[in-house]
Nucleic acid binder design. Structure first.
Lengths: 220, 220
DNA sequence: TAGATTGTTAATCGATTAACAATC
DNA sequence: TAGATTGTTAATCGATTAACAATC
């Protein structure tokens, strides 16, 4: 019986951070690290690090700490960094192009093997070696290539429609860049929302500025 | 005395979402909405919506609900959507270009008035009407234009260095797209980490697939 | 063996949800 | 006025932190 408790999203979101820090340690030829040292590097409590890792297994050794190489690989496995997922990009606009040229994907085990658009001026062009195809061919392509992931970079008025078509064709996960929350049954959706992130930045900037003003007033 | 309790980041991160939903209601000419209706639209509890909003003030009216227009403007003010911040982009690569062409910025009150790069082939080019300048001119430009925000899209090995230079020149907030956590005293940093987001997607896709396999096995 | 550090249980803290009096 | 819905306090839930026995 599958008794494994569901890991909270807060924990999962920290995994890529661990992965990055461990990669850096690996590059610096550090072979072992304790949760305490990692904690000082990352600004997370050692307790939380141990708690997080133990959601997935005991990767450390009492009295020693963690072997950097082992832990790096374990987290990679947990994140599916070795899965070699197939992905397509829908929407060959600025963001779509930027992502098509993004080098980190291959490194993480993702392969982009199709780009789709509606614009006749763009169809046929090559972006990072991949020919842009007409969106009418998308459904067929997804089925034929067993594509799991679709990266959505279309204007937000088309998002819902295109997402549903992709899901029907067999897409299992959507990486959604449009300023619109997507929810599709049985499909994993990761919403990016750059403009939300920017607004949070604006809020924090405003707060910081006001705090500052207040302190200045106090000093007078 | 400033007795206002600090609003948690979890609350702040929901504000742009409220803002988007209210904007849509506004477009549909909806004039009033209750926390209950909004809750059904957004998949958030009505209690949380009221709790969130009341961190900033009582914008509603008992027995009536919220006036969409009023609430939209209030949240806009809270987020500083009316502040007209000046921003520069550092790094005219694929991501920098995509962001320079991103239409939503102006709408949110951000103005990009400078793009910087080191590449002589790129310097002098125009991106969305803005000339790319050599990075040596950055410090002077920031001081002279009173630029508050820098958007960082440089390769991650330069990130820390460039960020610190920008901060010294007077930048107050950094929107960081490199796969490296930044922390700079007295500067607001919002890290985007696209590759982290993609790995979380990968994790969730893997989980969903395994769950499915497991269920299939059970049925046999 | 002694020292170090994990894995794990218990305590604390904060965020979400529920409940309801206030009031439009 | 009666009905509806807020603003706000109290209860619950979950996530983080602390503590410590297990063990390398």
């Amino acid at each position: 019986m599958n008794t494994r408790k569901k890991v909270s999203i807060a924990v999962v979101k920290r995994l890529p951070r661990y992965y990055r820090y461990l990669y850096n340690l690996l590059k610096e030829n550090v072979t072992r690290i304790s949760s305490k040292e990692l904690s000082q590097n990352m600004g997370i409590t050692a307790s939380q690090i141990r708690q997080d890792l133990n959601c997935f297994g005991g990767f450390g050794q009492q009295g020693y700490g963690y072997n950097v190489h082992v832990l790096y690989n374990e987290i990679g496995n947990i994140l599916g960094a070795n899965k070699n997922y197939q992905a397509i990009i829908i929407g060959a606009g600025n963001m779509g192009r930027a992502l098509a040229n993004y080098r980190n994907f291959e490194k993480r085990g993702y392969e982009i093997n199709g780009i789709f658009d509606v614009d006749m001026n763009v169809i046929g062009q090559k972006i990072n070696g991949i020919v842009v195809m007409p969106i009418d061919k998308m459904d067929y392509f997804i089925k034929n290539n067993n594509t799991q992931i679709a990266i959505l970079t279309v204007p937000h008025e088309y998002t819902k429609d295109v997402a549903e078509r992709a899901a029907t064709a067999g897409i299992k996960a959507l990486w959604n860049f449009s300023a619109m929350d997507l929810q599709i049954p049985d499909v994993v959706v990761e919403n990016v929302h750059l403009s939300d992130s920017l607004m949070v930045l604006g809020y924090r900037l405003k707060e910081a500025t006001e705090e500052n003003k207040f302190e200045e007033t106090e000093l007078k």
